[in-house]
Amino acid sequence: MHEWALAEAIIRCVEDATGGKGGVEEVYIVVGELQSIDLEVLRWALGELSRGTRLEQATFKFEVERAEFACRNCGKRWSLSDASLGEEEREAVHFVPELVHSFVKCPACGSPDFEVVKGRGVWVKYIRLREG
């Protein structure tokens, strides 16, 4: 997902989850490596979009989960750094991570039938509210 679109989604998600319960102090976000998110751009977009909201004073913390694949055909496990993606392919996977299945094959047997075991998606792990 695009960083700005993702920031919009995170702000909306945190507002929905905290439902008017005061200011937000910290938001902890896990980002799958497959998303190829530029964390500095995401941090900037979150800062811009949280102005005038209950997240205005919030600190955004990020954790990147490394991507790991497992072949359903031969059982081989490998990581994103083992895969060679071109610029356009990386861009496509950035927008829709499932497209990794179009561009990556098992390095052992060549099958495109693999599972993304880890490192896909973005989720809010926890939200800390401001006391008082």
């Binding site: 919009e8 989604a9 998600c13």
Partner: peptide, 11 residues
């Protein structure tokens, strides 16, 4: 929490 679900309605 999956933030995507929060933004689809807005889109």
């Amino acid at each position: 929490m999956d933030p995507r679900l929060s933004v689809i309605g807005e889109r």
